[in-house]
Write a protein that binds this DNA or RNA. Structure first.
Lengths: 116, 116
DNA sequence: AAGGATCGTTACGGCAGCGGATTGTTCCCG
DNA sequence: CGGGAACAATCCGCTGCCGTAACGATCCTT
């Protein structure tokens, strides 16, 4: 069965979540960066710059820059595709998995505390 | 009863949501801006710059700038507090209400489409 | 072997956000 | 009534992201 949620609950959820995120001085990713990160971790590999760009409807430089930033944070890593050396394969990292695990738990906790 | 949600569902929810947001070329607000907007619309007035800043754990200039930006988008408006003219009262707008209504509906739609 | 196509990255100029310090009003209290 | 406190806005230099346009490397086709 699907998750039932009323609009007012949805907004409260977003509110609590955004407050947690803003306070947390975990480096707050931009919406685009988060979208890329989630795509890499939730969708089936392999992931390329080109694929992610078209998936999100943004330009390739946006993806490259986001990978630069998140790479510096060790949330993702890059590797040349040896089969086709033009491609770059985006890989998951332990730190990235932990980051998302924590994020998921935060959402669950906030949702649980939501008034019915 | 509380909203029950598994971590994997939570991440999928965020994923779909971020994709919708990124594609939508609705001006995507930064996490901080969204947090301020939601606070203004979900918490009981009156809202002041100082109050919002301490609520979010950010500095006052951050709030002022966010209000500048969102004011230009007509998502909020400002008014001097006549009782204490040092204060500025942040007010809701019709456009802001519509923006959040739409956002809430998006969350609901995404949640409903989530695999159980 | 060569031309063009594809891929990711980088360069560029511009815009917006940041923290910290300062300013100008307005209020409060001794 | 005068000096300090409180409040929001502004200024400063900096950093990071944006879109467009190039670029180098690699592949593919003929």
């Amino acid at each position: 069965m699907a998750i039932e949620l009323r609009p007012s609950q949805a907004l409260r959820l977003l509110h609590e979540l955004s407050l947690v995120q803003v306070r947390d001085d975990a480096p707050d990713l931009s919406p685009r960066q988060l979208a890329i990160l989630l795509s890499v971790y939730l969708e089936t590999p392999p992931h390329t710059v080109r694929g992610l760009a078209s998936r999100l409807g943004v330009t390739k430089p946006v993806v490259t820059r986001a990978l630069d930033t998140m790479g510096a944070l060790h949330l993702v890593s890059r590797r040349r595709d040896e089969a086709d050396r033009r491609n770059v394969i985006i890989q998951r990292t332990v730190e990235g998995a932990l980051y998302l695990e924590k994020l998921g738990d935060q959402v669950v906790a906030v949702a649980r505390a939501l008034p019915r």
